[in-house]
């Protein structure tokens, strides 16, 4: 080994892994484009799934938004450990002198960028198509979107690493993840509904509190759990 080499710390290693994943995604762009197209299709299909004279688009929007976000996030998560599994690149990562937690956090960070990226395109699109008054509440709305994305990614990254090792592979991921997304979808949709209705953020506080709690609990739990899923 080089005498002056110093294996990276947990944060540096996470950043290296995340940057590598984003470079792959940027190079191929397949998953991201697929997720965006999926999300936009969802926005339009949902619009016609209800009678727009009976249900106002305003009332539909929060639910549509969060169902679409979670499902399109799954597209990115599915691919997350697929690229590691293809040529057993995960073995090189595991054999390297980096903490397992750093691998998880790096993958999660890249997935977070993916999900937030999809949200950044879908949210304005939804606002446009559904005539939503997002102008004044855009910042708090973006904040909720990021909080929800953190929860989705924390759980989804772990399950993605588990699912690729099973015979069901990508079929298993939604089955494991969606029940875990229920508290996220509910809290985020409820908060969004209140924000869009022009009510003060304090009204949504009971929901936000649960969402933040979920994020904290599952980031910690999944980071600690990840090493158990890879050690052989």
């Amino acid at each position: 080994m080089h005498d002056d080499a110093r294996p990276p710390g947990i944060l540096t290693a996470s950043w290296l892994v995340a940057r590598k994943d984003l470079a792959i995604e940027f190079r191929t762009r397949t998953a991201f484009l697929a997720a965006v197209v999926f999300a936009l299709l969802g926005v339009t299909i949902f619009y016609f799934a209800w009678d727009s004279t009976a249900v106002a688009a305003m009332d539909l929007a929060p639910g549509v938004l969060w169902v679409i976000f979670t499902f399109s996030a799954l597209l990115g998560l599915q691919r997350s450990f697929g690229v590691e599994q293809a040529d057993r690149a995960i073995d090189a990562l595991l054999a390297a002198p980096v903490e397992r937690e750093a691998i998880y956090l790096g993958k999660a960070l890249a997935n977070l960028a993916f999900v937030v990226g999809v949200e950044a395109i879908t949210l304005p699109a939804l606002a446009l198509f559904y005539n939503l008054p997002v102008g004044e509440v855009f910042l708090p709305l973006a904040g909720v979107a990021v909080l929800a994305a953190i929860g989705i990614v924390a759980v989804g990254t772990l399950f993605s690493s588990m699912a690729v090792n099973t015979r069901l592979a990508e079929l298993l991921l939604p089955m494991l993840s969606l029940p875990f997304f229920l508290p996220i979808v509910m809290t985020a949709a409820q908060t969004t509904a209140r924000l869009l209705a022009g009510r003060p953020i304090a009204d949504a506080w009971p929901w936000l509190r649960i969402l933040v709690g979920f994020d904290v609990v599952f980031i910690v739990a999944c980071t600690l759990a990840y090493p158990f899923t890879v050690e052989e």
Binding site: M1, A5, P7, K20, A23, I24, R27, T28, V83, A86, D87, R88, A89, D91, A92, A95, A96, P97
Partner: peptide, 16 residues
């Protein structure tokens, strides 16, 4: 850090 491993899988990222 002192071990190198050539496995029969390439352990490479095909897009990079």
């Amino acid at each position: 850090a002192q071990v190198g491993f050539v496995s029969h899988a390439g352990m490479l990222y095909s897009a990079l």
